[in-house]
Design a protein around this nucleic acid. Structure first.
Lengths: 215, 215
DNA sequence: GAATTAATAAAACGAACGTTCAATTAATTC
DNA sequence: GAATTAATTGAACGTTCGTTTTATTAATTC
């Protein structure tokens, strides 16, 4: 046999991507074999090399597109010009929605970084840093405006991101909690963590939280 | 050659464990070969099988001992009978100290779970759940006493654990922040996140946080 | 110091790996 | 409908993998 009836390059490539994300998320990149992936797609292993020159190219493509998707999602959800609290809320909501929706893809992008070449690792980390920088900017602005109470902006940003991304570890759609409920809870925890205060028009540069925000 | 001068089973086994933790943390379990591990120890691959019957046995041993260490560390640090806030503070401090001190081991125990057999995976997860249950109990007690403001105990526990364990992803000893500083910051963030209030002798069962704790 | 046990080396096993190549057939173009 | 291009198969390549077996030497016991 050779070319099969109804075969279509675009469809096959899409099927390879989808199967690869799921398999790598479940088994890990190293543990997934190209033959296993091919079988999942319904094709021979050699056919995969028409779309991705190496196994690592496949991994890198998945990761790069994940990061591009994240940046694009945020640039769409980002409020044009708003107060730090609204911006933080938007960031949290977008982050959680995106990561729950793309659980497998997130798993791959977070867990398989060590399988990339140095050059490609740097490239992915650069994209990640750019995305995290947005959160740090929001926290800094909020702290300077006296809306947030933050010890260390960088440390707080990392803590928040770890906390939010961690959702994918335990969250399973269709179980006890809905995405909306989880997002609301995390938003509430985030606002308390950054010491968000209800602004009364004027910034209060010091003093501790008096009016915690109920969300 | 065969037995080498000065060879000692106990020392070799200890060297294998240590090298394995470091190699698996750096390369991943699947990516580390037994020959690589043996070379790191300064021995032939066959010698490893005197101490661990299979590669998976080695992984499982490392994970089980990590979890046992965590439980033991907590049972030592746990305050005998104290208020929820002190208990929470002790939990956070112990958790962060332990995980920073055993970064590589934590990496292995968190990232390589999928390489365990179903039975062994269950065993490790059971230990982890038992440890997390302690945090949930503290949060529940605090919420019932009116010392904490918590939406959902289970969700909050997961969020806190992800946040705290996440330290190992970005923390590098000897850089900008010391362990003490990081712990203090995380403790502060934790207390705010759970809405800890200064107790005035009587529990205030409802109402929002008025006196945020400064730590 | 002979016998026994402990700790290792050296070599080999079959299986699986990522990848390549040549052949073959389906779809498209002219 | 012939020529060309697209998509895939099947077989093979050399390498590496986890693991086993056998032999050999160091340390210990008697």
């Amino acid at each position: 046999m050779a070319r099969t009836t109804g075969s279509d390059g675009e469809k096959t490539e899409a099927a390879v991507r989808e199967a690869a994300v799921n398999l790598i998320a479940r088994l890990g990149y190293e543990a997934m074999s190209m033959r296993q992936l091919a079988a999942e797609v319904g094709v021979q292993a050699a056919a995969l090399y028409r779309y991705f020159p190496t196994k690592e190219d496949l991994l890198f493509t998945l990761m790069r597109e994940h990061m591009e998707g994240l940046q694009q999602a945020w640039s769409t959800a980002r409020p044009a010009a708003a107060d730090p609290m609204s911006r933080l809320a938007a960031y949290v909501e977008n982050h959680i929605a995106f990561h729950i929706e793309r659980r497998h893809s997130t798993h791959v992008s977070n867990m398989e970084l060590r399988s990339l070449s140095h050059e490609r690792l740097t490239q992915i980390l650069k994209m990640r840093t750019a995305y995290e920088k947005e959160l740090r900017a929001i926290l800094r602005d909020g702290a300077e405006a006296g809306v947030f109470e933050i010890d260390d902006t960088g440390l707080t940003a990392m803590a928040l991101i770890q906390m939010m991304t961690g959702v994918i570890v335990w969250f399973r759609p269709g179980e006890r909690l809905s995405v909306t409920e989880v997002t609301a809870s995390y938003l509430s925890m985030t606002m308390r963590l950054v010491g968000a205060t209800i602004s009364h028009g004027t910034a209060r540069p010091s003093g501790r939280a008096r009016d915690a925000v109920a969300l």
